[in-house]
Simulated scan of single mutants.
Amino acid sequence: MSDSNISGTELLKTVLQPLLEDFQYWFTRSRDFLETERLSFMDEQEQLDLLSRLKQAQEELNTAKMLFTATEGQVGIDMATMAPWHQLVTECWNVAARFRSQQSSQ
């Protein structure tokens, strides 16, 4: 097992850094979508609430990324912090899928 000598820092950089980039990508894409589309299956307040939660998650993510970078990958992120991000991305995927489905049926 040549990988058994990998340091904790290198493991964090290998796993966590791409994960944070993925969250950034999906948060940005979802935010752009919610800011440009009016979703007929959600009332305006629901859409604004989802957008607000995305903005909050982006701020949390940016803070986590700054800490990760400032410590040169020495700091991890608690799963209790990332689990809501994952749920939010999944919620946004579902909203986008419903939008696409609705668009294709019209």
Rank of each mutant, 00 (worst) to 15 (best):
E44V: 04
E44C: 05
E44Q: 12
Q45N: 05
Q45D: 04
Q45G: 03
Q45S: 07
E46T: 06
E46Q: 13
E46G: 02
Q47P: 03
Q47H: 00
Q47C: 01
L48I: 01
D49Y: 10
D49W: 13
D49C: 14
L50P: 04
L50A: 11
L50S: 11
L50N: 01
L51V: 05
L51F: 03
L51C: 00
L51Y: 06
S52F: 00
S52T: 10
R53K: 12
R53H: 05
R53F: 04
R53N: 07
L54P: 00
L54W: 02
K55L: 07
K55M: 10
K55A: 05
K55D: 04
Q56T: 14
Q56G: 05
A57S: 14
A57Q: 05
A57W: 03
Q58R: 07
Q58V: 06
Q58F: 02
E59M: 09
E59R: 09
E59D: 12
E59A: 01
E59N: 06
E59T: 04
E59F: 02
E60F: 03
E60K: 12
E60H: 09
E60C: 07
L61E: 02
L61F: 02
L61N: 11
L61I: 04
L61A: 03
L61W: 04
L61M: 05
N62R: 12
N62E: 13
N62G: 05
N62W: 08
T63L: 06
T63S: 10
A64Y: 08
A64P: 01
A64Q: 10
A64G: 03
A64I: 07
A64H: 10
A64D: 10
M66L: 14
M66C: 07
L67R: 15
L67A: 13
L67G: 15
L67S: 15
F68E: 01
F68R: 05
F68M: 11
F68C: 08
T69V: 14
T69S: 10
T69E: 12
A70P: 00
A70G: 01
A70D: 14
A70I: 00
A70S: 08
A70M: 07
A70N: 08
T71Y: 08
T71A: 13
G73E: 12
G73M: 15
G73P: 14
Q74H: 13
V75K: 12
V75T: 11
V75A: 13
V75S: 02
V75E: 11
G76I: 10
G76A: 14
G76L: 09
G76D: 06
